[in-house]
Computed example of a mutant assay.
Amino acid sequence: MSDYARIADAITFIASRVERQPSLEEIAAHVHLSPFHFQRLFSRWAGVTPKRYLQVLTLERAKSLLHESRSLLEVADTLGLSSGSRLYDHFVQLEAVTPGEYKQQGAGLVIEHGVHDTPFGQAFVALTPRGVCNFSFLDNKAPDAPLAALARSWPEAELREAPSRTQEVINTMFDGSKKPDRPISLHVSGTNFQISVWRALLQIPPARVVSYAQVASAIGNPKAARAVGLAVGANPIAFVIPCHRVIQQSGKLGGYHWGETRKQAIHAWEAARYE
């Protein structure tokens, strides 16, 4: 069993019993480790102790974060930026597929791809010359599904396995010890509405959350919370486009394309590093 699989098992156990605050001994026994070894494993992975993670997981904390969140556009205005979509341009640059590129269906294009370990399990990464076009968690499955989806999206492109190239993306995303020398570039295909939602998500700071309604308001369509949810679910770049930072108005995490346990894990990981 991988470290992440063991951690995920522990997180599911903790989440199902968060109201009664299970002890370190109980959690460790559930994943068949001694309390000492489990605490060391969890702290090495998350950067926080299991006790601190229990605090991160509470509904009250989520509600407090939502209450503190101002509208995304208000945050952008406070920072003096020309538009909300530019708030995190110094971290991530998002470019939409042009109509011409879409029509050509990838003709003459080489897309490099690879599979890598991450703090949240294995992930499939694909790159066009303009940036990351897909990042999908695999849940210990073969990458056949995201590779097939990539071929359907770009039927005329040459798909080339190049893990040494895609490893650079993983290093930039998850290695906090190194400051990236350039922003992560994303090259995504979606409707105008989806693109506007994904740009809005890039404005949410790490370890913070917003509701679907707040995202809808930020893109100038306050009645479109349900449509925002669909666009969030269609996000092709896991983690970098942070759909995990959108939760229900009640404070509950809500659904996640790559599993609610992983969403909980990412929240704990980000809270340990950015709060």
Results as ranks from 00 to 15, higher is better:
E158A: 14
E158T: 14
E158V: 10
L159T: 04
R160E: 08
E161K: 09
E161S: 13
A162H: 02
P163L: 08
P163K: 03
P163E: 06
S164V: 11
S164Y: 04
R165Y: 11
R165C: 13
T166R: 08
T166I: 06
E168F: 06
E168H: 07
V169I: 11
V169A: 04
I170F: 03
T172H: 13
T172C: 09
T172F: 06
T172P: 06
T172W: 10
M173G: 07
M173P: 00
G176C: 07
S177T: 15
S177H: 14
K179E: 13
P180C: 10
P180K: 10
D181H: 09
D181G: 12
R182M: 15
R182L: 12
R182F: 13
R182I: 05
P183I: 12
P183K: 07
P183G: 11
P183V: 08
I184Q: 03
I184C: 00
I184S: 11
I184H: 07
S185M: 13
S185G: 05
S185D: 14
H187C: 12
V188P: 01
S189L: 10
S189H: 02
S189E: 07
G190W: 02
G190N: 11
T191C: 03
T191Q: 03
N192T: 11
F193H: 09
F193I: 12
F193M: 08
Q194G: 07
I195N: 00
V197E: 04
V197Y: 06
R199Q: 15
R199G: 03
A200V: 00
L201F: 05
L201V: 10
L202Q: 01
Q203Y: 03
Q203R: 14
I204G: 07
I204Y: 05
I204E: 02
P206K: 11
P206G: 09
A207M: 06
A207R: 04
A207H: 05
R208M: 01
V209L: 10
V210P: 00
V210F: 07
V210I: 12
V210G: 00
S211A: 12
S211H: 05
S211T: 04
Y212W: 09
Y212Q: 10
A213C: 04
A213E: 14
A213S: 15
Q214R: 14
V215S: 10
A216E: 03
S217Y: 06
A218I: 09
I219Q: 08
I219S: 07
I219P: 02
I219T: 05
I219A: 08
I219Y: 06
G220Y: 08
G220H: 02
G220A: 07
N221A: 13
P222I: 01
K223C: 11
K223H: 13
K223N: 11
K223F: 07
K223I: 09
K223V: 07
R226D: 15
R226G: 10
R226L: 14
R226I: 15
A227S: 15
V228E: 03
V228D: 01
V228G: 04
G229W: 00
L230I: 11
L230Y: 05
L230S: 08
L230V: 01
A231P: 09
A231W: 03
A231F: 13
